[in-house]
Simulated assay, not measured.
Amino acid sequence: MIDIVNQINATHREIGNRPVAAGEGRSLLLRRAYDAVIEDVWSACTDPDRISRWLAPIEGDLRLGGTFQLKDNAGGEILRCEEPHLIKVTWALGEGMGTELEVRLARGDDGGTVLELEHAAPAEIVDEMARTYGPGATIGIGCGWDLALLGLDLFLHGTTFDPATWGDTSEEKEFAARSCRAWGPVIQAAWGTSDDDIAAAIAFAEQHYAPEATGGDNR
Rank of each mutant, 00 (worst) to 15 (best):
R104I: 04
R107T: 04
L105P: 07
G76L: 07
K71I: 04
Q69N: 02
G98H: 04
L62I: 07
L117T: 00
K88Q: 15
L115K: 00
H119A: 05
A121I: 13
A120F: 12
I87D: 05
C81T: 15
R107V: 14
V114I: 14
E102V: 11
W91P: 05
K71S: 11
D109Y: 12
L64H: 07
L86Q: 13
L62T: 07
A123K: 01
L105E: 06
L70P: 05
A74E: 05
R104H: 04
R80N: 01
G111I: 03
F68I: 03
A106I: 07
K71M: 10
E95D: 10
E77V: 07
E82L: 05
C81K: 10
R107H: 14
H119R: 08
E95M: 12
W91M: 09
G98C: 12
P84D: 01
G96H: 02
E83G: 07
E95I: 12
E95C: 02
E82W: 12
E77T: 14
G94A: 15
L64F: 02
L101S: 12
A92N: 15
F68A: 00
D72P: 03
R104D: 10
D110Y: 00
V114T: 14
K88G: 06
T113A: 05
T113L: 05
E118M: 08
L101C: 10
G94D: 11
R63Q: 04
E100K: 03
G65R: 13
L101N: 08
G76R: 13
G108R: 05
A123I: 01
